[in-house]
């Protein structure tokens, strides 16, 4: 087994020992879908949603929530703590580079999102007849792009925050407005025009649009793709520039 695989598995094991992480990334999205699925108004098909029911849109929102929690709160806090406690420094004294630990964290978090996605769409389909995505590859691409944007922001937070606690505080501060624009409280298409256009440029809203699009088999919006690639490139480059190992 390669060192990278070992590290990733080790990160997995350690993460699964954190009940909060497991709850918010795997159980909470399911809980959200289950509760919302039982609300009668969620079965309605407002004309703005182009034939989809509200609950259909919320499957993506629930997954977006998991991605947001990981990208804005979980990962930056973990990485900043790794720096704060000298874990990255210890790596620097071994033949393994500390970058590999970051890569293992990212891989582990991405894998968690994919597991969460399978769970969310399976439960949503079986329990509430949310359609199986017309374009599964477009959905996978949407999830990957959503993660790229969110994780790049998370890396930048980890790079800039002096401690794990600060990283978590900033992440939480960003989390609520971003989730609002992504339509966690009210679907984007039901929002006033201005809020929708602002939302277009926030990462989770762009990700949400791509996921909704994949559900109905529309071709992906170039604006959403560009926005997410932009977050990936700009935040990613800034994270690389400002990341401190100690």
């Amino acid at each position: 087994m390669s060192v990278f695989t070992k590290l990733t598995l080790s990160e997995f094991k350690l993460t699964l020992r954190d009940p909060l992480y497991v709850f918010f990334t795997l159980l909470f999205p399911l809980l959200l879908i289950t509760i919302l699925g039982n609300v009668p108004t969620m079965q309605e098909t407002p004309p703005e949603l182009g034939g989809l029911r509200v609950i259909d849109v919320y499957a993506g929102a629930a997954l977006g929530l998991a991605i947001g929690i990981i990208g804005l709160q979980g990962m930056p806090a973990v990485l900043a703590t790794y720096r704060e406690r000298g874990i990255l420094r210890r790596f620097a004294t071994t033949p393994v580079r500390p970058t590999l630990l970051l890569a293992a964290q990212l891989t582990m978090n991405l894998a968690t999102v994919l597991v969460s996605a399978v769970l969310v769409y399976t439960v949503a389909h079986l329990a509430f007849d949310v359609p199986i995505p017309e374009a599964p590859f477009a959905l996978l691409l949407a999830i990957l792009l959503n993660c790229s944007g969110a994780f790049a922001i998370g890396l930048l937070l980890a790079a800039l925050a002096p401690s794990g606690k600060t990283a978590n505080a900033i992440g939480t501060f960003l989390f609520f407005p971003m989730m609002f624009f992504a339509g966690l409280w009210a679907p984007r298409d039901l929002m006033p025009e201005v809020l929708q256009r602002i939302g277009d440029f926030t990462p989770f809203a762009a990700g949400q649009d791509l996921m909704t699009g994949a559900l109905t088999g529309q071709s992906p919006e170039w604006l959403s793709i560009t926005v997410l690639m932009g977050y990936l490139l700009i935040c990613g480059a800034a994270a690389v520039k400002y990341f401190r190992w100690e």
Binding site: L14, R85, G86, R90, T94
Partner: peptide, 16 residues
Amino acid sequence: RARIGVQLQESELQDK
């Protein structure tokens, strides 16, 4: 790096 072993001050591990 493979030939030197280093024990640093205030270098911890993950709690779990």
